[in-house]
């Protein structure tokens, strides 16, 4: 669990890293939309998408090991996808003595391919963009400032609260506690309760500290230069290529 929730950001100075966050956000969103709209029978289109992402990863110098490791962490829905060939009605084919449904196989392929491409694109975005810059990019794209603020507070204090949880776990462990089964849930729930109270009180303290420094509901705006036309053009390469592939996939 803990491994899955560490930020994937890899600092760097590649052309992908230096693009403004909101350009990258739009690019990734358009890319994923194009992938989602591609008919599942166009197998070659998904190969081209994977090549596009590989090119971006190479340009950003993101180690392929990082992507592969993250992709291996099973999503529960992968299990759902793998069940599809057995439950979908329709004509059946026999593979290795197992009767598999053809529409079910297509469905499983569809989910696995699109989900994998989507996760890879999001991973590339997270790896090449600072978390704070991502939130500011979202705000530039029209996300309400209040929501961005909540998210940035969450990011800023996420580590603090997680550390608090870890300290409590160390304290429990050093008193001989071992969570073995359902019988220990009471203690763990008390931990969660204590964590809630501590988070709430920390929230109050943070608010008071900010109010005493003149906070009135919005943080001082930092000046972030708007993206130039060239930067937009660079960012548009990926979604433009993806839409072309998608169009080809629909028509061919």
């Amino acid at each position: 669990m803990g491994g899955a929730h560490r930020s994937h950001h890899r600092p760097g100075h590649s052309p992908v890293h230096t693009l403004p966050a909101h350009c990258k956000l739009v690019a990734v969103l358009c890319f994923v939309l194009a992938v989602a709209c591609t008919p599942r029978t166009a197998l070659w289109a998904f190969g081209l998408y994977a090549l596009l992402l590989a090119a971006v990863a190479a340009l950003a110098r993101v180690p392929p090991g990082l992507l592969a490791r993250r992709l291996l962490i099973g999503v529960p829905f992968t299990a759902f996808a793998l069940l599809l060939p057995f439950v979908v009605p329709g004509e059946h084919t026999t593979v290795l003595g197992l009767p598999l449904s053809v529409p079910g196989l297509w469905g499983a392929w569809n989910i696995l391919a699109k989900a994998t491409l989507g996760v890879t694109a999001s991973l590339l975005l997270a790896a090449t963009t600072e978390p704070r810059a991502l939130l500011l990019g979202l705000q530039r794209l029209g996300l309400p400032a209040q929501l961005t603020q909540i998210a940035s507070f969450m990011l800023r204090y996420g580590e603090v609260v997680t550390d608090e949880l870890r300290r409590m776990s160390v304290a429990r462990g050093s008193r001989g506690f071992e969570a073995r089964g359902v019988r220990q849930w009471g203690v763990l729930a008390k931990t969660a309760g204590a964590l809630f109270i501590r988070s709430y009180e920390r929230g109050e303290r943070v608010h008071l500290a900010m109010a005493s420094r003149g906070y009135t509901g919005s943080p001082p705006a930092l000046d972030h230069p708007a993206a130039t036309r060239t930067q937009w053009a660079y960012a548009a390469v990926l979604p433009a290529a993806a839409f072309t592939v998608c169009l080809l996939g629909v028509t061919l």
Binding site: H5, Q146, Q149, I150, A151, S152, F153, M154, R156, Y157, G158, V160, V161, T162, E164, L165, A192, L195, F196, S199, Y200, R202, G203, E204, V206, H207, M210, G217
Partner: peptide
């Protein structure tokens, strides 16, 4: 914002 942010961090941690 500070309170909801901390509580989101709490949900995330739990």
């Amino acid at each position: 914002a500070p309170l909801a942010g901390l509580l989101a961090a709490f949900v995330f941690a739990t």
